[in-house]
């Protein structure tokens, strides 16, 4: 755990024969990074200033793609709004639910491991087409969920047909898969020193007070990490929107990932799609940086 110390000693050990061999191992990754990550990353930026379409030689078009995205393309703004809506519903929903369940499961009961396993199963299937199809069937107009509502005396909801509900349906699919966040929280909760609780108990602190004063601060760093990784995933969502609702109805679930896919692989406006992807990247970056900037205020550092 505290290995960080080792790195602070000498900055590096020079180019000894041994280090050269070590470097050659890392070179495997460097090669991969250059070819499959850095090169695509930079070409994506370059393409975003061209009319690249895979058929013809790309021509430089300056800022045209970006200008069009920002000033002309209403679909882009719709997609941006849908994506942000989706992200800001699923990420907090998932993290909060994961935390609550982790708190409940964080005790030594017989068979608790089995229960944890059960809660993790939906996450196991995350992103799979199988689950997306299942969701579609469950939430159809005369699907099981509506039958359930009717049985309870409630009216049917047009889960997939009504634009405002379609986003909710997709979000529910995502939130349902909170298992991995839960496991993360569980491991963080295990690391909270029991001595803190004991001390608090002696002082006569109430349970809610202990939660807010001890538990919550101690797991903020995990929560922070969790939120960032979930954000990056959520902003790029594609499969559930594509399989469950195909972007509809009336573009209500046409997330940025889908717009990108359609522009690039259906209309072959690859340069344009690259520009979209860069805006997506900048949004991810801004949200992450804002979180980092504010993290000092709410993330607890234990050293």
């Amino acid at each position: 755990m505290a290995k960080a110390k080792a790195k602070e000693k000498p900055r590096h050990g020079g180019w000894t024969k041994r280090n050269k061999i070590g470097f050659s191992y890392v070179c495997i990754w460097i090669f991969g990074f250059l070819v499959f990550q850095l090169y695509p990353f930079i070409s994506s930026l370059i393409y975003s200033f061209t009319n690249y379409d895979i058929f013809h030689t790309p021509e430089f078009v300056g800022l045209d793609n970006y200008i069009r995205l920002f000033t002309k393309d209403q679909e882009f703004w719709n997609s941006m709004a849908v994506t942000l809506k989706y992200t800001f519903i699923t990420v907090p929903g998932k993290v909060v639910l994961a935390l609550i369940v982790a708190l409940i499961l964080n005790r030594n009961l017989k068979g608790i491991n089995f229960i944890r396993t059960v809660y993790y199963i939906p996450s196991l299937l995350s992103g799979s087409v199988a689950v997306a199809i299942l969701w579609k069937v469950l939430f159809m107009n005369d699907g099981f969920i509506n039958s359930l509502l009717n049985a309870a005396g409630l009216p049917s909801v047009k889960w997939l047909g009504q634009p405002s509900m379609a986003v909710v349906t997709i979000c529910m699919l995502e939130i349902w898969q909170f298992g991995s966040s839960m496991v993360l929280f569980l491991s963080a909760l295990k690391q909270v020193p029991q001595s803190l609780y004991e001390a608090a108990r002696i002082d006569g602190a109430s349970k809610p007070r202990m939660f807010f004063k001890i538990t919550l601060p101690m797991i903020t760093s995990i929560a922070f990490f969790n939120i960032i990784m979930q954000l990056i995933t959520a902003l790029q969502n594609f499969t559930s929107a594509f399989v469950v609702t195909n972007g509809g109805p009336n573009k209500a679930t046409y997330v940025l990932g889908m717009k990108l896919y359609t522009d690039a692989f259906k209309y072959f406006k690859m340069g344009y799609a690259c520009a979209t992807s860069w805006i997506m990247f900048v949004v991810i970056l801004i949200i992450t940086l804002v979180l980092f900037a504010t993290s000092k205020k709410w993330v607890y550092y234990d050293n």
């Binding site: 590096h12 020079g14 890392v26 990074f33 695509p40 990056i232 992807s277 990247f281």
Partner: peptide, 24 residues
């Protein structure tokens, strides 16, 4: 192995964790 640039390269590696698949 503490070859020169190890820490920098490792930082780059961590940075790629954040690289969205959509962009590449």
């Amino acid at each position: 192995f503490d070859f020169p640039g190890n820490q920098f390269l490792f930082m780059v590696l961590i940075a790629t964790l954040m690289l969205p698949n959509a962009i590449i």
